[in-house]
Design a binder for these strands. Structure first.
Lengths: 142, 142
DNA sequence: AATAAATAGTTGACAATGTCAACTAAAATT
DNA sequence: AATTTTAGTTGACATTGTCAACTATTTATT
């Protein structure tokens, strides 16, 4: 593999993480961290999702997820129920309140992204989206 | 702006952060965090860089950077000297040892990226790099 | 020049985040 | 039935990150 290829990925990462503010801990100054938002997203996407699925999805430590889930439950964002099929396992659902909070976060995220994109001219913006969708398609294939 | 446009950025972010393992704290199981590596990168790139520059570059809290710098200095990765021009300010340089450590991290990062890319076929890989470079060019213009 | 305001970075005091290994309970395997 | 594996939780920390207050210049204002 060409060195140039790898170098491009690295250069991209450096730019992109700053662009998206990923280095900053709290997500859009909300009361949620990036990971918490991802967990909410997962629960919103698939009702009754299991912790083990989220662990695989986000590639994080299970003990860490366990605490995140506990914290979200305490804040009434999600609820846990015992799995009927597997006594060891657990089903996670987002609450109505959780959905509303999640929607708010999405709005905030949209505003932020809109702000970033608005600094681009139309051509660049279109090209950006096209390139992102290409990358995403390639990565999603895996 | 089209909703679709924003949605693509969001979808991209979700995929990409997982792909790059950005959600995981420690950088490639090294003794350094992602931000520390970025600071090393900054010092390696520009000898005598000032903390305020890094704060602007990475968009992080100055007190936080101050501690990161102190920690890196203690570990002999960088050294601080007083700025000759401005008595309030400080110059940061990477040490020889720091350069070596940084090089090691780069190697590890290359290996990781190579691993990720090796799961793609040649066409996809080329397309991925092309798209990344397009995004990067657009974002760097700003 | 004297005073006030702004800037660069540090520190105190926490709060939040993240990790690792050990543990419990329930399945699955032998 | 005994053993192993799996799902998730908990203890015990270590690290990371935030906010406001503070010191020491430097710059701007009168």
């Amino acid at each position: 593999m060409k060195k140039q290829t790898i170098e491009e990925v690295r250069a991209f990462n450096r730019i992109y993480t700053v662009f998206m503010g990923i280095l900053n801990k709290s997500y859009l100054k909300s009361n949620f961290s990036l990971i918490e938002v991802r967990v909410m997203h997962a629960a919103n996407n698939k009702d009754g999702i299991m912790p083990s699925e989220i662990v695989a999805l986000l590639n994080i430590d299970k003990s860490y997820l366990s605490r995140i889930v506990a914290s979200l439950e305490k804040r009434n964002i999600i609820i846990k129920t015992k799995s009927p099929k597997d006594g060891r396992s657990v089903r996670i659902s987002i609450t109505e309140f959780g959905q509303k909070e999640f929607e708010k976060l999405n709005q905030a995220s949209n505003v932020q992204i809109e702000g970033l994109l608005s600094t681009l001219n139309e051509r660049d913006c279109e090209q950006l989206i096209k390139s992102m969708s290409e990358i995403r398609m390639i990565l999603e294939k895996k």
